[in-house]
């Protein structure tokens, strides 16, 4: 089946992103296709490459990035939510006059239409949040 995933909370503060990671790994293991993972609300904070957790802790952004690379998963960050919270790719950083971008490899910034499209195209949409 094609599965769409919506993540509405950032890393560490809530378990949402961890649960979603475990769910996505299990779904891939079972042969399902992850149509897209969409990051909304504070979920956009999962996309920063600047997070530097202690060495004995997991790096959630890196885990998403690695999973996306291995399994070719589309990780999409909502542009409006990302702008509010300071998650920027190169183009957004330039457009908004910021001195740096901070998006992790494997994530891309796009519009909310990508979430609706996931709802339309995927067989199921599963939300992880607080």
């Amino acid at each position: 089946m094609k599965l769409g995933i919506l993540i509405n909370e950032g890393p560490y503060q809530h378990q949402a992103s961890d649960t979603a990671l475990q769910y996505v790994k299990a779904a891939i293991e079972k042969g399902h296709e992850i149509y897209r993972v969409f990051f909304y609300n504070d979920g956009v904070n999962n996309a920063t490459r600047f997070a530097s957790p202690p060495q004995d802790d997991r790096n959630i952004s890196k885990e998403w990035s690695a999973l996306a690379k291995t399994h070719d998963i589309d990780l999409v960050v909502c542009v409006a939510a990302a702008q509010r919270r300071g998650i920027l790719d190169k183009g957004e950083a330039e457009r908004n006059g910021k001195d740096s971008d901070n998006i992790e490899e494997g994530f891309r910034i796009s519009g909310l239409g990508q979430l609706v499209e996931a709802g339309i195209q995927a067989d199921r949409l599963i939300t992880f949040g607080d």
Binding site: L3, H32, R124, L125
Partner: peptide, 15 residues
């Protein structure tokens, strides 16, 4: 387990 969670989402029509 998480595998069972995946099965539940696919066995039901919506979540």
């Amino acid at each position: 387990e998480y595998e069972g969670f995946v099965d539940l989402t696919t066995e039901h029509d919506s979540v």
